[in-house]
């Protein structure tokens, strides 16, 4: 059984937010109106979180792309009273919209703040619904949603591979964020596959995981920004 995971190299990430827009476009995440956005109700399945440290001129700004961490021990599923969120055998934390009652226990339980609540029914400005992806459902008002690692792409990739009588190749299934990344800072694949690129990257000495001490065992690994060491 595969165990899907992601590596994000912060040294390569340029903070461009292509992943943010690609994710919204792929997953039919509606745009909040300016007013809604002002109330902090922008929906995003992946976001860039800034950390600004130090004082001028010694300021450092770090930009952290933050999707659902797809924890192996997800705190969110433990609090769901209706079993509307759970983890698949291949490690993807799913949300079943039809079951979700909108209690938002999971949004509070998630230490990574990656779950968002639909305060209103999804709206598409006239005409823009043409660009909706038929592979992803529209979430109704009152349910929680989050990154799925673009699991619909996994279903499709598996089918294509199976119909050609071959196993799924490394890199054949990647989420929209990884696919668009112009600096190729994101890696995605099977952490159980010793030959996969993502496995190799997750063994880097620069690797760390967010809030590891909480024991959620996230499957998104970050590579710390290294320092330049010149020969001069």
């Amino acid at each position: 059984m595969a165990r899907w995971g992601m590596v994000i190299d912060l040294a390569k990430c340029s903070g461009c937010q292509a992943c943010v827009v690609a994710c919204a476009a792929e997953n039919n995440v509606p745009c909040a109106s300016p007013e809604e956005a002002g109330r902090g109700r922008t929906l995003a399945w992946i976001k860039i979180v800034p950390f600004i440290e130090g004082e001028f001129p010694h300021v450092k700004m770090r930009l952290l792309p933050l999707p659902c961490q797809h924890c192996d021990n997800p705190p969110c599923i433990k609090v769901c009273p209706v079993d509307a969120t759970n983890i698949t055998p291949d490690g993807i934390v799913r949300q079943i919209f039809g079951r979700c009652i909108g209690c938002r226990y999971c949004t509070n339980a998630c230490p990574y703040t990656v779950r968002v609540f639909n305060w209103k029914a999804p709206e598409w400005p006239e005409g823009m619904e043409e660009a909706q992806n038929p592979d992803v459902s529209l979430r109704p008002k009152g349910v929680v949603e989050k990154c799925t690692f673009c699991v619909h792409r996994l279903q499709k990739a598996k089918e294509v591979a199976a119909s050609q009588n071959r196993p799924l190749a490394d890199g054949e299934y990647i989420p929209a964020c990884v696919e668009t990344c112009p600096t190729q800072a994101m890696y995605f694949g099977d952490l159980e596959d010793p030959k996969s690129k993502v496995k190799e990257m997750s063994r880097s000495p620069r690797v760390f995981r967010l809030l590891e001490e909480l024991g959620a065992q996230p499957k998104v690994f970050y590579l710390a920004e290294g320092e330049w060491s010149g020969k001069s």
């Binding site: 461009c16 292509a18 827009v21 690609a22 476009a25 660009a131 696919e179 668009t180 990344c181 112009p182």
Partner: peptide
């Protein structure tokens, strides 16, 4: 048209697409 993806054979962007490209639709 439902999604923009980079052409991985293109010598300029090598499969990557910036946020403006992702917003095209």
């Amino acid at each position: 048209a439902v999604k923009v993806v980079g052409n991985s054979n293109h010598p300029i962007n090598r499969g990557g697409v910036c946020p403006k490209g992702q917003g095209l639709l």
